[in-house]
Design a protein around this nucleic acid. Structure first.
Length: 378
RNA sequence: UCCGGAGUAGCUCAAUGGUGGAGCAACCGGCUGUUAACCGGUAGGCUGUCGGUUCGAGCCCGACCUCCGGAG
């Protein structure tokens, strides 16, 4: 049977594990490596869908939505009545939904994990709920995303070896149940998630278990949860080798511009992260010369654009002085413009990376980026 | 002019006669499968002025200055 989402590998970088490919989805093709903006509550915060669609030169091709949040509000049944998440939020390109697994971890105190699933209380009204692999898939099928994520447990850092081992084994058993509950195979795909914390033997164990299930794609979960970056890079480096080359590899929750380059170099195809939009709402701009904290007084009288090398709508029309004014006054336009710029910056950076891989100069592209990003500010 | 009220951080206000605080603003930092337009830190003061009472006054008393309200 043909899967809803297939991966086509176009090219491999001769001097690193970086690769160039394409995800074919029911809502269009997604060129990889790709950064996926996060739209947890059926919206990329402070952005109109049409503006997300015109980010960079090619536009964002895929977004994230979240099972946990949409289940609680407005409820997946309502989204289904609306015609699915695409119709509900007016986004006709691809959507990937997270399973709610991460919330199991991040909403720590409100949950209770068992073999069956996770009992938790709503952070909104304290009401009691239960997520199981089956219910997570049922919700994601109601949402109608192109790529569903398996229901997993993202172990915290630090966590001891024994706990992580038990956790990853349960996550694999949950994956088997997710796969059985997955019925709309011609419309939706399901990715498995590798866990194992920072323990390489456990990562290997997890990889062997999930790859045996022959999923359409695999993600690396449980990283970027507080461990030092060097450890994350080291673990990731091995994880990728244990995943099949003909399937997409998705590093969940990453990242910052430097992490994107490090991930691509190690063979990651997909990334998502709240960082660019959250930083934007908190007054920080990502630029080719590093982060700019727009609340800082040094931008008061600076009439240059955020990034003189950027061709986004914001940089073509607004000055740092104006953006600082908006941000310090807590005007919503400040969050809107910085969100648009930051997402454009990451989407554009990924476009540059894809082009560099095609031209066999990924490592040069990376060095050039880092020299500027961490070099002297202008 | 008279009566009343009020003067404390840049602003709005706390502080039984016993080491003057908070919120906001300012300045700085943090944020990685969004409970986050959030969280944290730093700085900022001859308590309107001058006298008096008291061991001790932002606080009690007097005068003056300024502002607000009322009356005329």
């Amino acid at each position: 049977m043909k899967h809803a989402v297939t991966f086509e590998l176009h090219k491999k970088d001769p001097r690193s594990k970086a690769r160039r490919g394409c995800l074919h989805t029911p809502h269009g093709d997604v060129q990889t490596p790709v950064f996926m903006p996060v739209g947890t509550q059926a919206t990329v915060k402070a952005m109109k869908p049409e503006d997300v669609a015109s980010l960079g030169h090619e536009g964002a091709r895929i977004l994230l939505g979240n099972t946990y949040h949409l289940y609680l509000r407005p409820g997946h049944e309502l989204v289904k009545k609306a015609g699915g998440l695409h119709a509900f939020m007016n986004w006709n390109r691809a959507i990937l939904t997270d399973s709610g697994g991460f919330q199991v971890f991040s909403l720590g105190k409100l949950r209770m994990i068992s073999e069956e699933g996770v009992a938790f209380r709503s952070y909104i009204d304290g009401s009691r709920h239960m997520f199981t692999p089956e219910s997570s898939i049922e919700i994601q099928q109601a949402l109608g995303s192109d790529i569903m994520m398996a229901f997993d447990e993202c172990a915290p850092y630090p966590a001891d070896w024994r706990y992580v081992k038990d956790s990853l084994n349960r996550t694999t058993r949950w994956l088997v149940r997710c796969r059985s509950a997955w019925t709309q195979r011609e419309k939706q795909s399901l990715f498995g998630i590798m866990q194992g914390g920072v323990f390489k033997d456990l990562r290997y164990e997890s990889a062997m278990q999930i790859t045996e299930l022959d999923m359409p794609g695999y993600s690396i979960g449980g990283l970027s949860v507080g461990e030092p970056k060097e450890i994350m890079y080291d673990v990731m480096d091995d994880c990728v080798d244990w995943l099949p080359a003909d399937k997409p590899r998705y590093l969940m929750g990453v990242g910052s511009p430097d992490c994107l380059f490090e991930g691509v170099e190690r063979g990651i195809d997909m990334f998502d992260c709240v960082l660019p939009t959250r930083l934007a709402r908190h007054g920080v701009a990502l630029t080719s010369r590093g982060e700019l904290k727009m609340k800082n007084a040094c931008h008061f009288e600076d009439f240059r654009p955020l990034d003189e090398e950027c061709d986004c709508y914001v940089c073509r029309n607004y000055s740092r002085a104006y953006l600082r004014h908006l941000v310090t006054q807590n005007e919503m336009l400040g969050a809107m413009l910085l969100s648009e710029h930051n997402l454009h910056f990451l989407v554009r950076t990924m476009e540059n990376i894809r082009k560099a891989i095609e031209e066999d100069r990924f490592l040069e592209c990376k060095k050039e980026f880092f020299d500027k990003y961490y070099g002297e500010r202008k």
